[in-house]
Design a protein around this nucleic acid. Structure first.
Lengths: 355, 355
DNA sequence: TCTGTTGCCGAAACCGGTTTCGGAGATCAG
DNA sequence: CTGATCTCCGAAACCGGTTTCGGCAACAGA
């Protein structure tokens, strides 16, 4: 008996502290402790403080899945990756996850990740995560116009936050980088170097960012008093191959551009190849400026001048916004933006005319 | 009252089906249903079948966090990323997550991801995930000799599975790629092209894979009857910069190698640079063969010959192994390996002697 | 002093499962 | 036919929280 008691107390010792332990230590009931922890108005300020302090000293943290059984929420953020999506997000994935994780864990939340390789699969993932209560809301990376995820979550009244913006903003919280400002500044930077004939290589028009970046390009051209040659505006380039293809089109134009603005770094690296094939040297014969800040840009020859995005910060802020959204805040108040950082690495130079 | 009833039934309709619903539909108690679902021996075969069929037709799935309150397990796998780790894993992160997610969801499990940027932070992450019951076990990518994660989880008796192998295998389940076979085959491939003077560029020796790959290199050399020149064996190269540095050492050797085997693709890309600086053409003046199968290898000039790892499959198998481990299987039976796939892209060629 | 609020907390039900315990009925040996 | 054993299931406690409801005490107003 002495043995079994010892064994029991040993187990007791390693047992995690529950709400009952806190209640007992304070001489209160667990219902009072619960309401105090959750800030109910019918618990006096003094008691709330006492409870919170005791909880802290006893190192008590309510078990999320024990709360979930009643509240339905497990303090976890959901992220569904889409593998069919182009590679552009992959270099940032680790940073993005780090940001999300940091933002979540700073509030004692966690991150549930799933991956899907088809559209139907994605819908399934959202639904099963919701069904099992594995996610209280979702982060939607790289949103699109008429995004099916937005449609789904809206109709199901599930909280979400977009990495992107759109006009149809009902119920939408978001964080986004002002890509339009970056594109405008890119143009102005080139103009300051004397360029007048500037091409634009956009990404996939189905994404929310593409029209915005195009608008920014147009704004820059307008501010500089330059006319936009439709021949020099292309779209749908998100990979190196894409970039090489559209780069060829631009460079083979009868009157080729002296500079190119790319909405996506990978496309710019494709432009590099198209230029190399034609014996054009960057930045001597062609200036290239892009957007994203992928690590490969550092290693390119010449290193790519670009507008870098702080993906980790984006993740952190998205996590914070989503938590607030889940807690019931109005999405209208949950919309933030930030600017990309200009990183001048040397792929732009003074305008010259080709022989 | 009619209204409230209607409202109620509307809510009832959208309410998720619980164990009570199943019990009621069968005229059993929920305890019987629970034990039937969990395969208890004191429930007759006939009843077990009846219950399982009814559960399936009613689309009933027990709420993981409701079970967790009693069992302590939430059917979720944990993954703690280490950002301080070198970049080599990043190109594969999406694939890896996809595999883990696929393996987990095929058994109705989920994946909880956290990120840490320091060692202490990592320990914290493990402990808070465990404390909150957000993970029943962990996948440990890129394990090291005397890995602090292994030590921690072993002592805490928490299930884990390693992506890697080690001698001190007590309590260790793992999946790993036979990097030693790849390195051996790499040597033999070069030998078949006439190479005799072959260098080796290893990764960080703190990782479990490094000694193994070195052993494979030695085995290949031995099989070919070649002697290993210690001058041509280097280590600690996991990035492009590392590769360039050690590549310089090798290529500046009085009697430089005609071929180099790299344990890591990134290092090989660094070798490319060191060779380019010296005006050496690959594969004419130098053959390079590596390991990993990173996407950048495809785009390199020339495309990199390598042993590609199916990272997605690795993730899937690790998830499956971990689930079995958590369910109580003996880790000794949970050790699998697979082979890397030789991808001949053209960075190796016949041996020539430099002028 | 009596009544009506108000502030504050305890008691108990509840959430959706799991697990222990005990007992009814069938089977079997004597 | 009786008693013991075995099968199989129901009843109820339990897990760690949340939430509803009611009541006691203090306080206000008269």
């Amino acid at each position: 008996m002495g043995l079994s008691t010892a064994k029991l107390s040993a187990r007791e010792a390693r047992r995690r502290v529950t709400i009952n332990d806190v209640a007992e230590a304070l001489g209160l009931t667990k219902s009072t402790v619960s309401r105090a922890m959750n800030g109910y108005a019918d618990i006096s300020e003094a008691t709330q403080l006492r409870v919170r302090r005791m909880a802290k000293t006893m190192n008590y943290l309510p078990l999320s899945h024990a709360q979930a059984i009643k509240t339905g929420r497990t303090r976890s953020l959901g992220l569904v990756l889409q593998l069919s999506d182009h590679d552009a997000q992959r270099p940032f994935l680790a940073e993005f996850l780090a940001g999300l994780s940091a933002g979540a864990s700073s509030e004692s939340w966690t991150l549930t990740v799933a991956a899907s390789d088809s559209h139907d699969d994605m819908i399934q993932m959202f639904q099963s995560l919701l069904r099992d209560g594995k996610a209280d809301g979702f982060v939607l990376p790289r949103t699109m116009n008429d995004d099916p995820r937005v449609k789904l979550l809206r109709e199901a009244h599930v909280p979400f936050v977009m990495y992107g913006r759109q006009d149809n903003s009902e119920g939408c919280a978001w964080f986004d980088i002002l890509g339009e400002d970056a594109m405008r500044d890119a143009v102005l930077h080139l103009v300051s170097l004397g360029h007048k004939r500037i091409g634009f290589v956009n990404g996939g028009m189905q994404y929310n960012y593409a029209p915005l970046r195009y608008a920014g390009f147009l704004e820059g051209m307008a501010q500089a008093g330059l006319t936009v040659d439709p021949d020099l505006v292309t779209e749908g380039a998100v990979t190196i191959e894409d970039g090489k293809r559209v780069g060829s089109l631009l460079l083979d134009h009868p009157v080729p551009p002296t500079a190119v603005v790319c909405a996506v770094d990978f496309a710019a690296l494709g432009i590099y190849r198209a230029a190399a094939v034609r014996g054009l040297s960057i930045p001597r014969d062609l200036s290239v400026i892009a957007y994203d800040g992928i690590p490969e840009g550092v290693h390119a020859q010449p290193p790519l001048t670009t507008f870098a995005v702080d993906t980790r910060d984006a993740g952190m802020r998205l996590a914070t916004l989503l938590i607030r959204r889940i807690r019931g805040e109005d999405p209208v108040n949950l919309r933030e933006t930030a600017k990309a950082t200009f990183v001048d690495r040397g792929s732009t130079g003074p305008a010259t005319t080709r022989p």
